[in-house]
Amino acid sequence: MVLLEAKNVAKSYGGLKVLTDLNFHVNSGEIVGVIGPNGAGKTTFMNLVSCLSPITSGTITYKGIRLNDKKPHEIAKLGIARTFQVVKPFGGLSVLENVMVGAFYGKRNLKSKAEARDAAEEAISIVGLLDVKDKDPRILPLAKRKKLEVARALAMKPDLLLLDEVMAGLSMKELEDITEEILKLKQKGITMLVIEHVMKAIMKISDRILVLHLGQKIFEGTPKEVVEEPAVIQAYLGAKFAEKGK
């Protein structure tokens, strides 16, 4: 079943086209990876899905509902949750309270504080932050703040989770942890759209991969197909691998 579908989606700021004619879909239960060099339009696409910026032309539908004129909070209530590339924890609120915001206002829309606390603790335990739940997130290391973002999104009980570079800047050990967590979430039936630069991880978790370059889709396929596609290697992997000296 198709959960999210983009038809001829384009976005421009003034005269600058950041996305052109994007067509693709995400099926229920899938993990779809989105890759591409900087400036490919990945985060722009995610901002369009969460309605933080308006679509210039084309349509995005979710469960058959047109998202074009929706507000971000309405999207959240429909069951779409996201994280931010630049983490945005609510400083001044503890980790637990941060996640409670998600439980209060996400799709779950809980009313009582006790329920919200239970839901939040569940989400926190999934990402393994129980030991720091009363700390102010501003003092936590980056890896934990990224986990907090995921926990906050999970507390919203999403059907579709948009992960924007949750792995960037993490150590090998932390990478393995978070990869495993993502696969666990998949087993729970959460569909995910994952933007990532860390190739190894994204190849491991994705069912399908969408490759963007300069605002256009240049390829779509399984991880195996992606690594073998010359256009992708040319545009993205080639440069990337050359950098690393592989």
Binding site: L52, H73, I75, A76, K88, G92, V101, G106, M156
Partner: peptide, 18 residues
């Protein structure tokens, strides 16, 4: 909780359903 979330980051607050 909603107000405090808005105070810190309005974008993050809105995508969380506020």
């Amino acid at each position: 909780y909603a107000l405090r979330a808005i105070r810190v980051d309005e974008d993050a607050a809105s995508v969380m359903g506020i």
